[in-house]
Design a protein around this nucleic acid. Structure first.
Lengths: 110, 110
DNA sequence: AACCATACTTAAGTATCTTATGCATAAGAA
DNA sequence: TTCTTATGCATAAGATACTTAAGTATGGTT
């Protein structure tokens, strides 16, 4: 996913947030979007992404819709209702994490 | 370490930064300091901390000094020279990670 | 006497990710 | 026209970082 271990644990948050912004996306599209938005700093590997999508679906946070474009398969994912709630919660967790870490690392601001 | 998976991968950064601030610390002290600074939000478990300290020592980033206080053992850790360098690098990574994630999650600022 | 705080250790299990491989279609370069 | 690259998904094996849990030991509190 990246050379920095810090990204461990943030993949689900990224997926959920992107879906909440873009309505529906397919896996490959997500990898490209992330590469784009981060100017190449963050590259999500397929080996991480697809199992993550399957798990989120199994947990009922995502719905799938299969499409065929140019004779190629695409699996579009979108948030379910509970997926939308989870997105809010994950984003709060991220904000909280960032605040906590800045507090630890930059205690002069505390 | 915490209910949020986001902390996965940031333990080493936390240890190194605390040592760079406080000169030398022992394991138990680190857990208490983190609990303090984060008002209880982040609790580092012993099962995570002690192996991490041993590994950082094995990598040459930390030096150990054993002390006996009140008939109890303490192992004080402090940064080596290369540990100090690594701390700088880890803190840069953290800043970079935060920037990237805010970009992904808050793209209006991009 | 029982419990909690201090202090360190380590083993077993889990989760997340990397690395690698595989399948399949299409477009572009050599 | 053959080879590479891009598109698109899937999954198994291994690495890593953590959780959970148990163990050892001292000392203060109820």
């Amino acid at each position: 996913m990246s050379n920095s271990k810090l990204y461990k644990g943030s993949l689900n948050t990224i997926i959920l947030k992107l879906l909440s912004e873009n309505g529906k996306m397919y896996g490959y599209e997500i990898t490209q979007k992330v590469k784009d938005l981060t100017k190449g700093e963050l590259n999500i590997t397929e080996g991480a992404l697809y199992p993550a999508l399957h798990k989120l679906e199994a947990e009922g946070l995502l719905d799938v819709e299969i499409a065929k474009v140019d004779n190629r398969l695409r699996k579009y994912y979108k948030l379910t209702e509970s997926g939308t709630k989870e997105t809010v919660s994950k984003l709060q967790e991220l904000a909280e994490y960032i605040k906590t870490m800045q507090n630890l690392v930059n205690p002069k601001l505390a």
